[in-house]
Design a protein around this nucleic acid. Structure first.
Lengths: 108, 108
DNA sequence: CTTATTAATCGTAATATTGCGATATAAAGA
DNA sequence: TCTTTATATCGCAATATTACGATTAATAAG
């Protein structure tokens, strides 16, 4: 995150920012959409789907998992990932909470 | 964005990622919520509100403007910012488009 | 015209992210 | 047990982000 004055923000603000930051990379957007497209859960097929190394995919998956956007379940030697339903509503809530301007209240 | 293989993603995916990335910083979350809280539009009062320098605030504002999350209007020597209604729906759309798993379709 | 005022931009140092090869870990199968 | 398979983690190099002081640009006020 570069030189961020992290201690000056509320933990809620930091949490929201962390979720959005996790979504702020094309590989992670692609991974998330790929996971959601499958009716059954996914494991390392993502490595075959994206032009990234296994190490990089694993890193992206753990970032998505760290902020609670996906869940992973170990099944034998492979890991099954699926969307985590608990975190997505926070994003909707953030958007809905914003007080949208009308042409009258907005800038001249 | 580090070493990103930017040319391997669709422009739509890159666009979504850019919007989320702009939201992926606590200062920009704070700025966005502050702007939305005012009934009238805001200028450099944000500098007084956040513990960041004028240069840093200006940079954050231009990032939010670059992805279309806010609009700025020059009024004399100051600049009035307000939310841009056109970009927020893209975020809602991204979330809604995700096919959410049920306990049956998800991991064991 | 000169001086404030406001915001954007430049240059730079500190830090974070990204991606990969190599390696480690852990379960499954021979 | 030894090997295969699948995933995570480490270490590194390349690049991006963040923040700030200093400077610039542009309008307003005197």
């Amino acid at each position: 995150m570069g030189l961020t004055k992290i201690d000056t923000y509320s933990s809620l603000t930091l949490h929201k920012a962390a979720i959005f930051k996790a979504l702020g990379h094309p590989a992670r957007i692609t991974i998330l959409e790929y996971i959601s497209k499958q009716t059954t859960c996914i494991c390392g097929e993502i490595v075959a789907e994206l032009p990234l190394s296994q190490a990089s995919i694993s890193r992206h998956l753990s970032e998505l998992k760290a902020v609670g956007l996906i869940k992973g379940t170990i099944t034998g030697t492979s890991v099954c990932y699926c969307l985590n339903l608990e975190t997505l509503p926070l994003i909707i809530q953030f958007i809905n909470q914003l007080h949208l301007p009308t042409p009258q209240t907005c800038c001249p």
